[in-house]
Design a protein around this nucleic acid. Structure first.
Length: 505
RNA sequence: GCCCCGGUGGAGUAGCGGUUAACUCGUCACUCUUUCACAGUGAAGAUCGCGGGUUCGAAUCCCGUCCGGGGUACCA
């Protein structure tokens, strides 16, 4: 039988990286086995539904490179792929009927107050908390019928058997046993008529022919409910793969407090989708041995459930930064320049940075407008920074001195280098050299400065290089000086050299 | 409270009965160099949560214990 897996997000918020990692595992697994990956939207909770969220889900998937073959956007033979639509289509009804008929499920009409009271009682009496029956579990059918016809709002619950050991065969952890007395009767159909996750997901997984269910570890304790349900319907359970959670630095579940966690925020932040995917896959999964840096295809080829760890991992931004920088360095320079230009001109990214770090947003705007006017110039600037940048947004700040008329001067750098006795004269000499020239080359610039060094009898190149760098870029760090000068060109060199001299006097 | 899962240097992982416990990130140093970065070399950092077993031999198997996380909703 061919592998069919599914990523089944709930549109209740922009998917975060842990969530997308589950999608990634699904994709990797499907690809590895030549199977099918389907996306199903689990929108059964109308109260928590977030408008526009579905688009963000798909955008996130595309961003990290997760592919799927069936879904609400692509169709397929097992649709519809939104649970709300499946409910409308009456897909769940026959199954709830068979459950009701066989007595595996029952109507319950407890009010929320009664339920709260019950939990409170259980709490103080140190009993397991949950719905273990009440009056409805074993009430005669006539009583439930009566309540229904009187118009009472009710739910349908699954009747969990007593005194049984339920065995979950988790693909990562192995055999997990839970006493059925520990599991309470879950609601299958809510009072509003919508199915709950417990019911809808199991029915859909079966109907869609899902063979392996990858889901978060937090589901492991409700797996017994799912098994009882599947059994009551006379179906074969899929293979359950409960993947470990991703934690923040402090050990708690990754959340907003830990900074960016939404997948799309990483895109806005300037991280390459491929790098994020690679990094995220490595939290909890390893191909074995020392392999780490991989493309999506390489990961798919190496992917294996045995390589998934049972223990949770911490999201380490430092390592993501390294990996992102590493993949930036591997990029074809032309492609990269195009990507940086596009990144900096995307409104969404600009908005993100405006809120996070305004100067960066400003630099991005500058890069974008320069790129529109002179893409070649920007591409060369990007190439010069490729080795020293860790994310796309950083190109903007690192390159900004190329694009402004007068770079912002770092006062400390100015004080350190422009005040030296020989500097004013030296800068004058260089300015005079470039005056009126059309263009220059790396070799010419290098020759000029080295000649000066020899002529002045300086032991090191530093005293000539550093002041020039500060005068030209305003900073003490950056690409090779000669490369940078060649790109800047004579006109800009002359203007900056004289401006720097003036500014210091 | 009850139940479940987990625990290898600061982080991610490899190793799954015999290794000087390996690799990557991070940290520090050195090399390269006009700076920063990149790259390269090296160092510090783990008695494999702890305590008992089993075994000639345990990170690896068993039990207990502690700590961490998760679940305990008409949320997923």
């Amino acid at each position: 039988m061919s592998v069919r897996v599914r990523y089944a997000p709930s549109p209740t918020g922009s998917p975060h990286v842990g969530n997308i990692r589950t999608a990634l595992f699904n994709h990797l697994f499907a690809k590895r086995h030549g199977g099918t990956h389907i996306v199903r939207i689990e929108d059964t909770d109308r109260a928590r539904y977030v408008e526009g969220c579905e688009e963000e889900i798909f955008e996130s998937l595309v961003y990290v490179g997760v592919e799927w073959q069936e879904g609400p956007d692509k169709g397929g033979d097992y649709g519809p792929y939104r649970q709300s639509e499946r409910k409308e289509a009456g897909i769940y009804r026959p199954h709830i009927d068979t459950l009701l008929e066989s007595g595996a499920a029952y109507w319950a009409f407890d009010t929320s107050e009664e339920l709260a009271e019950m939990r409170e009682y259980q709490q103080i009496n140190k009993q397991p908390i949950g719905y273990y029956g009440g009056v409805w579990r074993d009430a005669p059918a006539s009583k439930a019928e009566e309540a229904r016809s009187s118009g009472l709002p009710g739910v349908i619950r699954l009747k969990i058997p007593r005194d049984e050991t339920i065995v979950i065969d988790d693909a990562i952890r192995g055999r997990v046993e839970i006493s059925s007395n520990q599991v309470d009767d879950p609601v299958l159909i809510k009072a509003d008529g919508m199915p709950t996750y417990h019911f809808a997901a199991m029915v859909d997984d079966h109907l869609m022919g899902i063979t392996h269910v990858f889901r978060g570890e937090e589901w492991i304790s409700s797996a017994p409910k799912h098994l009882v349900l599947i059994r009551a319907l006379g179906w074969e359970p899929p293979v359950f793969v409960h993947v470990p959670v991703i934690k923040g630095k402090d050990g708690s579940k990754l959340s907003k407090r830990h900074g960016d966690t939404s997948c799309l925020d990483f895109r806005r932040g300037g991280y390459l989708g491929g790098a994020l995917a690679n990094f995220i896959a490595l939290i909890g999964w390893s191909p074995g041995g020392d392999r780490e840096v991989m493309t999506m295809d390489e990961m798919a080829e190496a992917f294996d459930i045995d390589g998934i760890q049972p223990s949770p991992g911490v999201f380490d931004l430092d390592k993501l930064n390294w990996l992102n920088g590493h993949t930036i360095r591997q990029c074809d320079t032309g492609d990269l320049a195009r990507e940086v230009g596009e990144f900096c001109s995307t409104q969404e990214n600009l908005d993100y940075w405006r809120a996070k770090d305004a100067p960066t947003a400003q630099a991005m705007g500058l890069l974008a407008s320069t790129s529109a006017a002179d893409p070649g110039y920007v591409a060369k600037a990007v190439a010069l920074e490729q080795e020293r940048v860790t994310n796309l947004a950083e190109f903007a700040t690192a390159c900004s001195f190329f694009f402004v008329d007068a770079p912002e001067m770092d006062q400390k750098a100015v004080d350190k280098w422009l005040g030296k006795p020989h500097v004013a004269e030296m800068l004058d000499e260089f300015a005079a050299f470039f005056q009126g020239k059309e263009s220059t080359t790396i070799e010419e610039c290098e020759g000029l400065l080295r000649d000066y060094q020899a002529k002045a009898g300086l032991e090191k190149l530093g005293p000539v290089v550093h002041p020039v760098r500060v005068a030209l870029t305003g900073k003490t760090v950056g690409p090779g000086l000669f490369e940078l000068m060649a790109l800047l060109g004579p006109a800009r060199i002359v203007a900056r050299l004289s401006a720097a001299k003036r500014a210091y006097e």
